[in-house]
């Protein structure tokens, strides 16, 4: 018997628990030339903003041990181009769409969510409250990402909850002392799920030139280097939450993804690994199905939180 792979995040149905992480899969088009993107549980798009953004000055990317530091700064095509060019492509290919959005005010998030819902250009909203690389919000070097302050997480989530009927995911930052606080704030404000983790803030310096390797000085760390940190945060958060968790951070293979499910994630997102292996997310879907069959587990949901302690 084929095991069940379908999961639900609030009202969002995913045919399997594997999506891709925002900003690592473009708008789906970039990877549709390698495999059928509708075979994924969902495609999560690069953060979009109301207006197009050019992003930060280069260099924006540097490799560090088993990871990547990036300071892209939310370069994106903007909502209008997404609606006109990107969403129709995703729809035509039958992809389930998680639309990741970014704004500098609750109003902007709400307008993005409303217009995405009206245009049927999203099946769920993921509010990026945790981008470490935006300098216009005075956040790049300051302490104040929205997701670092539980009260602001609640404020933004409440506003969005009132603005849209779409399933609402809130994407949190690992750059906090206790991940449970912003996670609980999102839940209490009516979010249908939380996505964690965004990148860990970091930096690298070239000793020869004495310059930071990124023009933005600091950036966000992703890739296998952050996997144990991400896993622990998913474990921490899922134990206190009633709502689902989408886990991410360094997932490269099916066994990595299974660790996140066991720790309590209801679904997972594959991020930086797609850069190295364009069909990594698809291979993880297949590896997960094989694992369930091999262990005679009838339903992937049986793995969620099933860590043996």
């Amino acid at each position: 018997m084929k095991p069940n792979l379908e999961v639900r995040i609030g009202a969002l149905r995913m045919k399997n628990p594997v999506t891709v992480a925002s900003g690592t899969f473009g708008y789906g088009q970039e990877y549709a030339r390698y495999f059928d993107i509708a075979a994924l549980g969902a495609v999560t798009i690069k953060s979009i903003t109301l207006k197009p953004r050019a992003g930060n000055a280069p260099p924006r990317l540097v490799e560090t041990p088993a990871g990547i530091l990036n300071a892209i700064g939310l370069q994106n095509v903007g909502l209008d181009a997404y609606l006109a060019e990107k969403a129709p492509f995703l729809r035509k290919h039958g992809a389930t769409i998680i639309a990741n959005i970014y704004g500098s005010q609750p109003d902007e998030y709400c307008e993005l969510a409303r217009r995405l819902e009206e245009a049927h250009a999203a099946d769920a909203i993921e509010a990026n409250l945790s981008c470490p690389n935006v300098h216009d919000a005075a956040t790049a070097r300051g302490p104040a990402l929205v997701a670092q302050i539980p009260e602001r997480v609640a404020e933004y989530s409440r506003a969005l909850r009132a603005a849209t009927k779409l399933p609402l995911l809130v994407k949190l930052t690992p750059n906090v002392a206790d991940i449970r606080e912003p996670a609980l704030a999102a839940q209490e404000a009516g979010a249908d799920g939380v996505s964690l983790i965004n990148t860990l803030m970091g930096m690298a310096i070239d000793p020869e030139t004495r310059r930071p390797r990124l023009a933005n000085v600091i950036g966000g760390l992703s890739g296998p280097a952050i996997r144990p940190v991400a896993l622990k945060m998913v474990w921490d958060a899922s134990r206190v939450l009633q709502i689902p968790v989408i886990g991410m951070g360094g997932i490269c293979t099916a066994p990595d993804a299974i660790q996140f499910l066991l720790a309590g994630a209801n679904a997972v997102a594959v991020g930086s690994m797609s850069f190295r292996q364009p069909d990594a997310a698809l291979q993880i879907v297949r590896g997960l199905a094989d694992y369930l069959e091999h262990h005679q587990i009838p339903d992937v949901n049986d793995l969620v939180g099933a860590i043996a302690t």
């Binding site: 900003g23 473009g26 990317l61 892209i72 850069f275």
Partner: peptide
């Protein structure tokens, strides 16, 4: 990182 236009 990607070579495919995705990571920017």
């Amino acid at each position: 990182a990607c070579g495919d236009g995705a990571c920017l």
